[in-house]
């Protein structure tokens, strides 16, 4: 599914990722944890293809293709989905138009025809119910005036509609209360399947109580310094990240 080898990346001349390796097989859930500034969010941005992030070395294969060679939208067509930590507000562009355009674009790339508006509305309504987002939000501008929690629900809503094969959740838990966290996790769990993988980036162990990972990796100093199963997350919670200081060479 996803094969990251020796990935190095920088933003504005600052090296952030310094030789990161990560292999994700279909159906797996990988959690990436680490202290602030370790490069967790950079990983998501680099994978999604954000322009400001420059890859200086290494490779990323996704679905057997060279991911780094693709435009942002082509990566999405291929099934990569990034749930943003801070989803941007786009006033004036209706959320519904946005969702329909996205779904149609991704479907088209998969050789499927556009959904009729009735079909789409049905899907959108179901999904919004699942993430407990009032349907009125579909009419509003993209994320416009949404609260932090509503924005995150909207991200999960998009994820459901786009049916990606790889979902990267970038600190989706930050700023969420327990109810919202539960809703988001339920959404994610409902989508778990043998051919869909997740990379869950988080600072806190809390989210992993709801989305139970197969593997836990610790990202520090721009690379994975320790990997293990879900018990590693508990260990981190108990000991803190400083416990790993020795591991960062």
């Amino acid at each position: 599914m996803l094969r990251i080898e020796n990935l190095c990346a920088r933003v504005e001349e600052k090296e952030i990722l310094k030789g990161l390796n990560l292999h994700v097989k279909p159906g797996e859930v990988h959690a990436i944890m680490g202290p602030n500034g370790a490069g967790k969010s950079t990983l998501g941005s680099v994978l999604a293809g954000r322009e400001a992030f420059e890859v200086t070395a290494g490779s990323v294969a996704f679905q057997g293709k060279d991911l780094l060679d693709l435009d942002v939208e082509a990566r999405a067509h291929l099934g990569l989905f990034l749930a943003f930590q801070y989803p941007v507000e786009i006033p004036g562009v209706s959320n519904m138009e946005f969702l329909k355009s996205s779904v149609d674009a991704v479907r088209k790339a998969r050789g499927k025809s556009d959904l009729s508006s009735v079909e789409f509305m049905k899907l959108a309504r179901e999904a919004s119910k699942k993430v407990k987002l009032d349907q009125a939000f579909l009419k509003r501008g993209v994320n416009e005036g949404f609260s932090g929690g509503e924005k995150k629900r909207n991200e999960i809503l998009q994820m459901m509609l786009l049916e990606p094969s790889l979902c990267i959740l970038d600190e989706t838990d930050s700023g969420l209360d327990i109810d919202a966290l539960q809703t988001v996790a339920d959404g994610v769990n409902a989508m778990r399947s043998p051919d869909r993988s997740f990379v869950v980036v988080t600072h806190y162990q809390r989210l992993l109580d709801y989305i139970v990972p197969d593997y836990v990796h610790v990202l520090a100093g721009g690379k994975i310094v320790k990997s293990g199963d879900k018990s590693l997350a508990k260990e981190l919670e108990a000991k803190g990240y400083s416990w790993l200081d020795g591991e960062v060479a």
Partner: peptide
């Protein structure tokens, strides 16, 4: 970037955003 990351190509994204403006 946000629109593109959801699979909408750049040109279409520009049209959507101009219209949104």
């Amino acid at each position: 970037y946000y629109l593109q990351s959801r699979g909408i190509d750049r040109e279409q994204a520009q049209i959507m955003m101009s219209f949104g403006f």
